[in-house]
Write a protein that binds this DNA or RNA. Sequence first.
DNA 1: CGCATTACCTAATACGCATTAACCAGCCGG
DNA 2: CCGGCTGGTTAATGCGTATTAGGTAATGCG
Lengths: 373, 373
Amino acid sequence: MAKDGAGGRARPGRAPAPAGRRSRPRQAEVAELAGVSQATVSLVLSGRDDATGRAISQETRRKVMDAARSLGYVPDPAASRLAAARNNLLGVFSFTATFPTDVRHSYYPFLVGVEQESAAQGYDLVLFTGSSTGGAGAGESSALHRVRLADGCLFLGRHAPTDELGRLVADGFPVVHLGRRVEPEGLAWVGADYISASRDVVTALAGLGHRRVLLVREDDDAPASTDRERGFREGLRAAGLPDGPGAVCRSGDPGREITAERVRQWLDEGVTAFVAEETDTGAAWRALRAAVDKAGARCPGDVSLALLGSPPADLAGEPPPLGFDIPRPELGAEAVRLLSALISGEPAEKKLVTCTFRPGRTAGPPPARPAAT
Amino acid sequence: MAKDGAGGRARPGRAPAPAGRRSRPRQAEVAELAGVSQATVSLVLSGRDDATGRAISQETRRKVMDAARSLGYVPDPAASRLAAARNNLLGVFSFTATFPTDVRHSYYPFLVGVEQESAAQGYDLVLFTGSSTGGAGAGESSALHRVRLADGCLFLGRHAPTDELGRLVADGFPVVHLGRRVEPEGLAWVGADYISASRDVVTALAGLGHRRVLLVREDDDAPASTDRERGFREGLRAAGLPDGPGAVCRSGDPGREITAERVRQWLDEGVTAFVAEETDTGAAWRALRAAVDKAGARCPGDVSLALLGSPPADLAGEPPPLGFDIPRPELGAEAVRLLSALISGEPAEKKLVTCTFRPGRTAGPPPARPAAT
DNA sequence: CGCATTACCTAATACGCATTAACCAGCCGG
DNA sequence: CCGGCTGGTTAATGCGTATTAGGTAATGCG
């Protein structure tokens, strides 16, 4: 393919050029064909002429458009972005080994919202995995620096090293974390308001007449868990219900599983409603359901159940539990909005997104009298 | 263009040092810190020094690396690409409105493979979304040209406009389509070998003794569908079974649904095995299962069922159907390999990936005698 | 008629990086 | 002492586009 035939523009050493793509017309060639300057072509094609008060005559505009069309001109995004000094790229750094592979993975719905909002804002997404060696990067030491290639970056996962994030933040690089996080000072984040959502669930149970409610949570001190417990306790107190150590059961440990016997015992003690925390796998909810079932208690009748979150996907067929839904896609979208604001230089700190209450069908009034022994 | 103070960049005024607002460090700043020239920085960081016979002293190299690391330097992909080089970015263009939102979406597993293989090859991924406006451009393509920012691009979805893809291919831009596709001449693709996989399923059924097998497919002429039908018919012929228009039922139209009565009628006609095509939603398979069930036929005993693909995720609990699994992650990985080859200038055309046969538990020998009326 | 105003358009330059010709120091063989 | 090295670095340039500071002809105004 003759590379310097028409344009007479021989490139310097281009020996190992993998693809002969010098046939692609540039604005200069459009300009030549239209008999105008390259700048005019840029003005016309970017539509920035009348916007800024600059005027391009209809005649010229038409000539340029025709020339561009006949040459099949397509702008080079690399050049555009270089000249515009921003590349319209948002990074997404997930500390999972790969894409959230498991369909049940709780990150996946986030990504949906992230993707939609990014598109709406005109950004493309760069996916960074924790591993990628890159090769071309300068600081191999931490893959995290690679995110600077984007205009800003979103972080998923609680394993983000605090100091690294702090470094990015300190440098003024726009960063948003998906999920509440306090560690690096000044880090922007979006999170779900588990506290008030959990409180509302307890309030609903109390409103139905329940006086003894038990929270089953995992033995983990992630913010997502502690927030739920806090909301739970707030709900108890607001309803004037007993809020002692006995109101919460930390499960998950071997030997401390939720068994039918324990459920039966709790029932005997007067507990009429159970609240389970949502986890990635839905383990707590599954265990609770199974144990209640095995104990011979029927759900809305003998005992009420609630789930602080959404049920796992494979239980979609079952009657929906009382609880709340985390608007994950909305969270993702909100994170992008925050990031976008940061990139534009606007200050942005954090954002709590409200969960939606789900009445469900697993809760009703407590039985008239607890089954006596 | 808003030149909003904080987030905006240094203006053409060419302020030598971005004293106030920190912008991303460039090679020039690394060079200054290291006490060398920008060119040296480029040479060191690209690792192209000793490769081309040029030598950089270890001393200088170390200084540059240290400076780069301490500044957190990361190359600007747009600039790299513009300078006729590569930026280690692979594009993924999905014509779905968003990320494959539904967890059942068949594209999602592809992405897993894509992501893994990209990471293995040292590429980062850029997700190009179908919508974003991306500049007025030269009239025609609104969004597709953006992919040129990357070194190459992967396309998902059957809605890719042929002419646009053709344009990219003609320009020598490395493009790989996920899924068999003939339309733009010279387009590279990877696809699953539905033909032989489907044939093998029929062969298996014939081997069990079935003489009348019916294919239920949707009324769609996508390659994925026609390939399956072709393989199905090949299987029939190879087994010496009747292969007429009656062997295939195009479903999906309202009024042509798979009902219990139709199933019963087919059974009466001597059909002993049904084969369903896999679709995004698994509709055909669901309908078939439901109809057979309602018709009172038990699956492995009275009638055999097969699925040309994988069952939908929410039926994962059920006994696996006879059929085959599409190695979607493997397909994605293969696509990346192909793309990588194209980028390196190696010729690459297409690649068929073999599906894995799944014996399943929904097929057995036909009943001794079809239930007589 | 001369000068200020428009209305249009162009020249020039920057964007950040890769590439290459040129340069410089030392050093060896003759 | 010179030509020819070789190793090590830099100045200079180009990639294709966006942007801005002019510039020129046509028009308006006094």
